[in-house]
């Protein structure tokens, strides 16, 4: 039950949506699948005066662009991403990451853009505040931090838990944003502010329109892992995604992109580890060293009852496993 009143608009085009947002000011919110926003409205952690529903706008089907890149409508449902033959062929890691989100019912509702624009999460934040944690924390506009009482920096150490963003970052995806000035294109990574208070850099009247995944290089392999206690129906303890491109000899690493989710306020690129991988022959021993370095490069926020030390263990072990898998796939794309 949403226990406050709000207005609701259902524009027919993205332009109309942007116009509504511009007109309404900061109290307006976009509603796509609603799987993130509606629970937050139930908890009254978000209390928009106006919801601009995107439900009347039909998403385009995933398609291949002239340059071989994959173009995905931000309003595409997660089930579309997960089940599209084109996505599974051209960006199987993306399909796999979409498949790990929640359960089927949520994927039937949730959209790609909504997943990438979801709010950060914290046990103290994502719940009803009728009688628990009543005084607002920094993120709710107050002046305390329940999980980190010594955090006096008016910041928020909540974690960004999209399962898909790390995969897309490892795939070097770009996004298209529509605003009053028209369309602009930027790397997905640039969307994230790294600030738990305001995790995204989207303008108030901006709308994520599309995600573009560039074509894979030859001899590129991938590995993806979502660590969780149960198989499904939960957010990740840690999310790991990697692409590895091998040199023509299929041995040395020509390039790699490693991204983590659910460990900080934004997806984390492991650029130092990536650099260290360049030119290395990725045998089992070297991969183990890289995985160790990866687990040290990030400073995971303890979250949802998991300690920093355990998160580091998870990153180290799973990074090693998925890099081995990525190399296997790079050598043999049919693996």
């Amino acid at each position: 039950m949403i226990l406050f009143e709000f207005d609701h608009e259902r524009p027919n085009t993205p332009d109309e949506a942007v116009a509504l947002l511009t007109h309404a000011g900061p109290d307006a919110r976009l509603l796509a699948g609603g799987t993130d926003l509606i629970p937050n409205m139930r908890y009254r952690t978000v209390t928009p005066a106006l919801l601009v529903s995107l439900g009347a706008i039909q998403p385009e089907a995933p398609r291949e662009e002239k340059d071989g890149s994959l173009r995905l409508d931000a309003l595409a449902k997660l089930v579309t991403i997960e089940n599209s033959a084109l996505v599974r062929k051209r960006a199987p890691m993306l399909a796999e990451s979409a498949h790990t989100v929640a359960g089927n019912q949520i994927r039937q509702m949730g959209t790609l853009g909504g997943n990438l624009c979801q709010d950060t999460r914290c046990l103290y934040f994502n719940q009803q505040h009728d009688f628990q944690f009543v005084a607002p924390c920094y993120k709710r506009g107050g002046d305390c931090c329940y999980p980190f009482p010594r955090n006096d920096k008016s910041t928020c150490w909540s974690v960004f838990m999209s399962d898909i963003a790390p995969a897309l970052i490892a795939l070097k995806a770009e996004i298209e944003i529509q605003g009053e000035q028209g369309l602009r294109r930027q790397p997905l990574e640039a969307l994230y502010a790294g600030d738990g208070l305001k995790p995204h850099k989207l303008g108030q009247a901006e709308l994520l329109r599309a995600v573009i995944v560039p074509p894979a290089s030859p001899r590129q392999g991938w590995g993806y892992h979502k660590e969780s206690v149960r198989g499904g129906l939960e957010f990740g303890m840690a999310i790991l995604a990697a692409t590895v491109t091998l040199a023509a000899d299929s041995k040395a690493c020509e390039g790699a992109r490693l991204a983590l989710g659910a460990v900080r306020e934004a997806p984390v690129r492991l650029t130092e580890t990536e650099k260290a991988m360049a030119g290395q022959a990725l045998d089992a021993e070297r991969i183990a060293e890289i995985a160790e370095a990866a687990s040290q490069e990030v400073n995971p926020l303890p979250h949802h009852g998991f300690t920093k030390a355990h998160l580091r263990d998870v990153i180290r072990i799973q990074m090693r496993r998925l890099l081995a898998r990525a190399v296997e796939r790079a050598v043999n794309p049919n693996a």
Partner: peptide, 16 residues
């Protein structure tokens, strides 16, 4: 105070 008062964060076994 209860930190995980939801089916999401209190993990019951699923069919998996």
């Amino acid at each position: 105070y209860v930190l995980n008062p939801t089916w999401l964060d209190y993990r019951m076994p699923t069919v998996h």
